[in-house]
Nucleic acid binder design. Structure first.
Ligand code: ZN
Ligand code: ZN
Ligand code: ZN
Ligand code: ZN
Lengths: 135, 135
DNA sequence: TTAAAACTATAAAGCTACTATAAGGTCAAT
DNA sequence: ATTGACCTTATAGTAGCTTTATAGTTTTAA
């Protein structure tokens, strides 16, 4: 299976596959005489794993760490679970920060209707005056 | 006022100030004979405006757009308000996406206790099997 | 059979918003 | 005269790709 077929199968671009290989997330495949990469089903599974991790918001470093656990399957899985716990708290703190931001933005937006000149715009005034009682 | 003083006043690094100048967000200041940048109070206000926009999560492009409105103060402010509305919806869709992600991660995490080998880890199995009924 | 279309390869740059490093010039004080 | 704090420019690094450039290969169609 060549790179284009693998890409279509998993739903990524060919450059992304080469990128993962370069980053050490996907093992370098064999090459044909002309230099074309030849992939096996294993590569497909590996690539799908990476993509699902990415959809869960895991960083490439976190994925790399997970792969290192997979390579040592008789260890206890506490590290895997801890990695996920950490990631969940990453996500939760992002949510919290964005909710605070939304609140600020909505209150800023409420300080203007649409019938003013830029000069008198409540939004611009709000930003300029720095009524930002928040870090 | 030199760059270091301005930086301390507004609470940014000097490189950041040069970066904003290079990006066209801050007007190039006059220079002393030795080449040192000399800033006025106007620059301080401009920089503070940029920083407050950044704290609101606005991109440099959005800030640039706001500045272009400021340069034309007798236009109606509908564009300003619309920019903010757009940004609020950016933030809201990020929140929604992250909340969906959190839910997925929590359910994945629940599929494992801490007393297994990596081989049998519910988390890794969950990712590998691709039980991701979600985009 | 040959020419175009589609595929592959590598290397390098671009994206965002900075941050950090390198190598050097300027200034005040010791 | 030299230390230290400040300033200058240019360049590279961060994350996770995407885009572009340039070139070689295979497949398809005329
Ligand atoms: Zn994470
Ligand atoms: Zn307004
Ligand atoms: Zn926005
Ligand atoms: Zn587990």
């Amino acid at each position: 299976m060549r790179i284009g077929q693998l890409a279509q199968l998993v739903g990524v671009e060919t450059q992304t596959i080469r990128f993962y290989e370069q980053q050490g997330l996907l093992p370098p495949p064999d090459r044909q005489d002309n230099g074309y990469r030849v992939y096996t089903e294993k590569h497909g599974e590996g690539l799908a794993f990476i993509r699902r991790c990415r959809m869960l918001g895991l960083s490439l470093a976190e994925i790399h760490e997970l792969q290192s656990y997979q390579d040592d399957p008789h260890q206890p899985c506490t590290a895997v679970n801890a990695l996920l716990d950490d990631h969940i708290s990453h996500v939760r703190s992002q949510i919290t920060a964005l909710q605070a931001l939304e609140k600020q933005l909505v209150s800023l937006r409420a300080s203007c209707n649409d019938d003013r000149e830029v000069e008198a715009c409540g939004v611009l005034a709000g930003i300029s005056e720095g009524n930002m009682h928040q870090q």
